[in-house]
Amino acid sequence: MNAPASPIRTREARPLGTAGGRWLVATLSGLVAALILGSIAVGYATVDLPAAFADLVAGRTSLPALVLWELRIPRALLGGLVGFSLGLTGAVLQGYLRNPLADPGVLGISSAAALGAVATFYGGLAASLSLALPLGGIAGAAVAAFALNLLAARGSGTLGLILAGVGLSSLAGALTALALNLSPNPYAALEIVFWLMGSLADRSMDHVVLCLPLMALGWGLMLSTGRALDALVLGEDTATSLGFGLVSVRLRIVTGAALAVGSGVAVSGAIGFVGLVVPHLVRPVVGGRPGAGLLPSGLAGAALVLGADILVRLLPTRPELKLGVVTALVGAPFLVGLLWHDRTRR
């Protein structure tokens, strides 16, 4: 029955290593660069881009230069940063939890970050201080990461970590709902709901400066686990026997995910499905080795978020569609299709 495998699966071995992966990384890097430029070019105000760039470089504070520096460039950069974080975290968590349905929200960090941001909304801090919102989000993610790390350091297993994440998600979700419930006026509630849907509109360079170092640190921590994720394909015992300390791996992943996703949610709200879908998109090209999918997943995530963010600005809907709505609209059918494909294959 299973002896003559289908020709697709028995294709001749490509050389070991990541030839396909490197090609993909190069292509995706080019795509992300192009999309960042595209994202800078697309907007509501008509701007003479070359002139704006010239003004910016020369240090002239003309209106086009201001639009570029205060609106377009931060928005494009954040799209790339948040997308990369979501894609990379999704790939790392799928590899670590050995589960194709894991996503950056599975540990409860996104929900906690959202709760933190909502709390600053609710407390009225957001109105008085422009960075209060992202700072609140980061604080929420930090609390969640601290709780998860306590658990992980005690050597609690993978399942314990997932269950803790589910618990944390529900708790943060319930508290967010409570904040909406007790909201002093309907406009505040509406504002919170809109913010939760995720958007990159009207973010400033301050947001970039705030989240970039946190994300870079998180990316470093997560990328450093690539080898261990490969070994974990063989199970936790074998990974340990290959010299990988699982507690250290767990701490790096939880901390890295909290830094990257927490600061991402803090500046952009919740953008769903990117982290879930992207690892599945790159897997056919880079193969099943989890470590080989990390960098491509991050880049593909960046491309996806940048593309979606360009799309919401090109669509005639006003006010523009929320980013989280668009990615989920694209992502949910994909997820169903994936499950369908898996069923028919077995």
């Binding site: 071995a13 394909v233 199970g235 099943g288 989890p290």
Partner: peptide, 25 residues
């Protein structure tokens, strides 16, 4: 070196890639 009974993660690794994991150390 250890060989334990454990379910594989289910990712579509090539057989050669699995063997290559033995070289990680």
């Amino acid at each position: 070196a250890c060989l334990f009974q454990a379910p594989m993660a289910g990712w579509p690794l090539l057989a050669e890639e699995i063997v290559a994991l033995g070289r990680l150390p």
